[in-house]
Design a protein around this nucleic acid. Structure first.
Lengths: 126, 126
DNA sequence: CTGGATCCACAACGATACTG
DNA sequence: CAGTATCGTTGTGGATCCAG
């Protein structure tokens, strides 16, 4: 569970610390762009510009920002080739690939229920 | 894949429409509060106020807003008991439970790599 | 090519007050 | 209790410019 940060009881300070960390990670990761980056990387290696091309609608800023965040959390590895012009490649780490599995599941889910959701929306909007 | 919205080729208009719908749903669902609500509901039934209590830090507004969105997409069912004071209960639908499975996986992942991520952060911040 | 920094418009959000 | 509406603030995100 990542819904709770604090239990209230004073003695489980470690538990609440772990929970609040879990929530923090969850908040980092549970956002549109981060998950799309993970998904786009798959088990390949992509350059910054390639990622931009893969992910429809992501801006320069959002891409760098989220890549930094993912790198900080150890989900993507960033390798810089000291050439000119510079060539920077991104690839998922082991933890990153673990997360990717869950994102894949989410994408499958999306496509599986596409029709149902579309119907539900139409009904709701009426 | 939900990373691409448009292919460029004119004849697969249906495919791009499906893709853009997938992206739209993905954007709705891939956000912190929505996923936390799904997770909190689990396979139970919770009232509005109970949800507020379960999800640390969510505001009244964010809760209603996201519940409407989830209801619109047919992921949660909202049943109003016409009593006074009113009693409104929320529960996951079948599609909602499907999504919940992936959120569960994401929570598991979070706890699994908690330590690694914490370490990676410390290294990065130095 | 990659990425940091700055500026700014606009959306998100929290707080509050009000209704059924 | 649940939900809507409004308002003011914060923060997100896009555009642009500059640097390595």
């Amino acid at each position: 569970m990542v819904t709770k940060q604090f239990t209230g009881s004073p003695q489980d300070a470690d538990l609440t610390r772990a929970d609040s960390l879990a929530r923090e990670i969850f908040s980092d990761v549970a956002n549109k762009w981060a998950l799309l980056i993970i998904e786009a990387l798959g088990d390949g290696t992509l350059r910054f510009s390639e990622l931009r091309g893969e992910i429809e609608g992501i801006s320069h800023k959002m891409l760098t920002q989220n890549l930094r965040m993912l790198e900080r959390n150890g989900l993507v590895e960033r390798t810089v080739h000291p050439t000119v012009p510079p060539r920077v490649e991104y690839t998922l780490t082991e933890p990153g690939r673990g997360l990717r599995a869950t994102v894949d599941a989410m994408c499958d889910w999306t496509h599986r229920y596409l029709g149902d959701i579309e119907d539900s929306r139409r009904r709701f909007d009426a």
